[in-house]
């Protein structure tokens, strides 16, 4: 089946893309670029860098703008998916949704209206187990945003490895942090992985942090041969 992946450049959409590639043909990535940093639907930090990931993965990308207003942004998402259906003849859409009924139900309705299949290969996955798979399958993921207590500045820009997963596990027990950031606690960016033909090297990034809210904005990055 020809599939398009709703793509933010974060670990969930990249890993969902890998899962889709294992069974079907991913023919395009679909990225919604929101002007609203607090979008209800769309991952925002560094989303403009998804073109670089698409190039690293050797896939075409359809980038669609939205003002990011609640519910209105769904019309933009529908238009983007409809455009992907027409341009790349996709038969279905893949998302990286794990727990969010809000996001999943809305994408399901759009797919139903457009007569497309909808796939959520990470749906209800155990978050710690998932993070371990991500690392053991060779993905290089950095944290580009933290938005919850007690995540301090050291988390911004950190790489997800087995040690960091252990820390997230203990924060889950103590502070009810979702280890994969499903509650909006973390945002991530993927630099390399088994579905990447080239890896991404960050040359310049700006770190900001204040009161348990921090971001790593990638300013200059390039593709490097593997």
């Amino acid at each position: 089946m020809f599939l398009g992946v709703l793509f933010s450049g974060g670990k969930d959409s990249v890993f969902a893309c890998k899962r889709a590639m294992e069974t079907d043909s991913v023919v395009c990535l679909i990225t919604i670029v929101s002007e609203n940093p607090d979008s209800y639907m769309f991952h925002t930090p560094n989303v403009r860098r998804t073109d670089l990931i698409a190039e690293a993965m050797g896939l075409p990308i359809l980038t669609w703008p939205t003002r990011g207003e609640e519910e209105i942004e769904l019309d933009d998402l529908r238009d983007a998916i409809a455009a992907a259906k027409e341009r790349y003849e996709i038969e279905g859409v893949v998302t990286g949704a794990i727990e969010s009924v809000y996001q999943a139900a809305r994408v399901q309705r759009i797919c139903r209206d457009l007569d497309l299949w909808c796939f959520n290969p990470l749906w209800q996955i155990d978050q710690v187990e998932y993070l371990r798979h991500l690392v053991s399958e060779g993905f290089e993921v950095i944290i580009t945003g933290v938005f919850a207590y007690p995540l301090d500045e050291s988390w911004v820009g950190a790489r997800i490895n087995f040690g960091l997963i252990k820390k997230l596990e203990s924060l889950q027990k103590k502070y009810r942090i979702n280890p994969s950031g499903e509650g909006g606690e973390l945002e991530t960016f993927v630099l390399d992985g088994p579905i990447f033909r080239k890896r991404i090297e960050i040359l310049k990034a700006q770190k900001t942090y204040d009161n348990y809210r921090g971001r790593l904005s990638i300013e200059v990055a390039r593709l490097v041969e593997k």
Partner: peptide, 15 residues
């Protein structure tokens, strides 16, 4: 068998 949907509808029940 072994479809992409299995991860969404079968694996969570198995877990």
């Amino acid at each position: 068998p072994r479809s992409l949907s299995k991860r969404e509808f079968v694996d969570p029940i198995a877990a």
